[in-house]
Lab assay of single mutants.
Amino acid sequence: MQRVNMIMAESPGLITICLLGYLLSAECTVFLDHENANKILNRPKRYNSGKLEEFVQGNLERECMEEKCSFEEAREVFENTERTTEFWKQYVDGDQCESNPCLNGGSCKDDINSYECWCPFGFEGKNCELDVTCNIKNGRCEQFCKNSADNKVVCSCTEGYRLAENQKSCEPAVPFPCGRVSVSQTSKLTRAETVFPDVDYVNSTEAETILDNITQSTQSFNDFTRVVGGEDAKPGQFPWQVVLNGKVDAFCGGSIVNEKWIVTAAHCVETGVKITVVAGEHNIEETEHTEQKRNVIRIIPHHNYNAAINKYNHDIALLELDEPLVLNSYVTPICIADKEYTNIFLKFGSGYVSGWGRVFHKGRSALVLQYLRVPLVDRATCLRSTKFTIYNNMFCAGFHEGGRDSCQGDSGGPHVTEVEGTSFLTGIISWGEECAMKGKYGIYTKVSRYVNWIKEKTKLT
């Protein structure tokens, strides 16, 4: 034993070699072989497995989906700052455009905790909710729209109204504003409101030439003092309507412009014939205590009207009353817009006519005020429907199939267009061939041609 100890002390290297040989010859039971080890760690190889990531292109799944990435790591994937920024906006807080917040056709661009709407022409605001041009839906104005110097929408209202708090709607500024039905039992019968379409306001006024200088022999019209197929109006439903009495009662109609003036057809009036105007009328054979009678003290036909040349060209006249009318729910003026808007309103496509005229061709006159909704007829169809001249200051309205029309005794009465609950004068009943005849239409004086003249002559002093 002493000898062994001496050998170990003198030859430590020998001992180490012996131990190493023993270990190498022993069977290893701690580690699995290569094949079995792979069965336990069965993990798919990654895209760049075996390579240094710093030297390969980034992978979106590896960089940002398996674990949260930084902007720089995302930049490695896209290799483009702009594309990385677009991805980053949604990656950080989701897609803010998912709810489609942009209105009126706006395009949404996502941002971090926010979004941006790219608005089409005519709109602005956070969600493109603000109209900035009158060309689109009248700028959301209830009545009139004008573009300011910086191309912003400025709404306005006709006389007797003021802008509401929203700067879009119009509200009454006087007790009985024009064009409004205020009798409670008839307010439910107000005709369907007309909503502004998209309009090209630059070209809204037709490029028409008034044929002022045409000389033409007097034409022989049949029954051209021209509501057939209409309905009984309720008291106060058309408070701007008046009836004219002269040699015979209810020979023509008219509309209240203001307390002192009536507008009617020029062919209705004769110099030297006494005319009485009755406002607030409903049943011409009954006294309903809503009527107001006034005498006409002055007749002003349009300066281009000449019955000797043509009885229905420039067929418009103004009547001055001896005493002002007292405005109330049964006696209310009709609204008159400017030339541009009167023309736009007419193009809405349908209007209402009213009167006490004959209820059928050569038949009896109506006792109760009649009204009828009539569609506008395109000019080409209008011209083809008659052998008589249709001037540019006239328009056609009615039904091709016949059966409904204005008729004798309705002449001078109103053709009105309702705009968001307020009625505007767009025409004056003038003439036609018979009444409600198939293929024939009622012919009306186009008020847009005469609004400046009306307003100039009827100013209240």
Rank of each mutant, 00 (worst) to 15 (best):
Y450I: 00
V368N: 04
V419T: 05
E420H: 03
C157M: 00
I443D: 01
L383C: 10
E82F: 07
M437A: 12
F399Q: 15
P101Q: 14
T16S: 03
T16L: 09
W240H: 02
L425Q: 02
T342F: 01
E286M: 09
K438Y: 13
K51T: 11
D110Y: 14
A380L: 07
C119L: 01
P101S: 14
C157L: 00
G402T: 15
G50Y: 09
C69Q: 08
W356T: 13
V374Q: 09
L460G: 09
I316T: 00
E159Y: 05
W261N: 01
K311W: 04
K274D: 11
A279N: 01
C178Y: 00
V447R: 01
S430V: 14
F123A: 15
M8H: 10
E73G: 08
C141T: 00
T158I: 07
C117A: 02
I136R: 10
T264Y: 00
T225D: 05
T218M: 04
R140V: 10
I443P: 03
C69D: 13
E401G: 05
G13A: 06
L32K: 14
K234P: 06
E193S: 13
S184A: 09
P101G: 08
C252A: 01
F395M: 02
F121W: 07
H361R: 12
D131Y: 12
N304V: 03
R384Q: 14
N48I: 04
A149M: 08
G439Y: 08
V56C: 13
H34I: 05
I336D: 01
G413R: 08
H303A: 13
I390V: 10
N80E: 11
N213F: 07
T29Y: 06
I7E: 12
E82R: 11
I256E: 00
I275N: 03
G21I: 11
C108S: 00
I262P: 01
D338P: 11
T85L: 09
L52N: 15
P44Q: 06
L20E: 01
D131H: 04
T215L: 06
L460Q: 15
E129A: 12
K457G: 07
E320I: 01
V331Q: 00
T389P: 09
V359G: 13
N135P: 11
E433Y: 08
N138H: 11
D249R: 05
Q237H: 11
R364V: 13
M8S: 13
K440H: 14
P12H: 12
L372H: 14
F121M: 11
S204D: 08
L318W: 00
C145R: 02
L425T: 00
T133G: 14
K446H: 11
G409H: 14
E82L: 05
E281A: 10
E54K: 06
D200G: 07
K109I: 07
N113A: 05
N295T: 12
Y115D: 12
Y341H: 07
G58V: 15
N38W: 10
N393T: 14
M6K: 15
C141P: 00
C155W: 00
K438H: 14
E76T: 15
P333R: 02
G105M: 13
L383Q: 13
T290Q: 05
E285C: 09
V56S: 09
N80T: 15
E420F: 15
L189C: 13
K152E: 14
V242Y: 00
N328K: 01
C141D: 00
K234G: 10
E286R: 08
G355C: 12
F251Y: 06
D150E: 06
V154C: 05
D232G: 04
E420Y: 14
E98L: 13
G179A: 00
E323D: 10
P324E: 11
L211N: 08
E54I: 05
R404A: 07
A37K: 15
T190R: 05
A192C: 10
S385W: 14
N104F: 08
K109E: 08
T290N: 12
A164K: 05
L319G: 02
G427I: 00
W118P: 15
Q57E: 05
I210F: 05
F360L: 15
S25R: 03
L325N: 00
E116C: 10
K188L: 05
L325Y: 02
